[in-house]
């Protein structure tokens, strides 16, 4: 008897590789999306700061826009710099 696998369709869930499950700003799961978005993943990406904290991109951008003076990470108060890793 010879068994040939012609095609294997597997099922997987995707997730962000991040230190935390939830966004520190909106408290929603990273694998979901920020309160302004309807579609997760490509449409509501995560960004990392050089302090190694990460947020929904939309959340941190909104946060930074609301901070007139210092652009700080809302978690550790260090100056926020995008980490383009």
């Amino acid at each position: 008897m010879k068994v040939t696998i012609k095609n294997w369709v597997g099922v997987a869930t995707w997730r962000w590789v991040a230190n935390d499950d939830n966004c520190g700003i909106c408290r929603m799961p990273f694998d979901g999306c920020c309160p302004d978005c309807k579609l997760p993943g490509d449409d509501c990406p995560l960004v990392w700061g050089q302090c190694s904290h990460c947020f929904h991109m939309h959340c941190i951008v909104k946060w930074l826009q609301s901070q007139q003076v210092n652009q700080q990470c809302p978690m550790c108060r260090q100056e926020w710099k995008f980490n383009n890793k």
């Binding site: 040939t4 012609k6 294997w8 369709v9 597997g10 869930t13 995707w14 694998d31 979901g32 997760p40």
Partner: peptide, 11 residues
């Protein structure tokens, strides 16, 4: 063999 995947948004 050929492999493919359904990639789901778990939430």
């Amino acid at each position: 063999f050929s492999m493919s995947a359904m990639v789901l948004s778990a939430q």
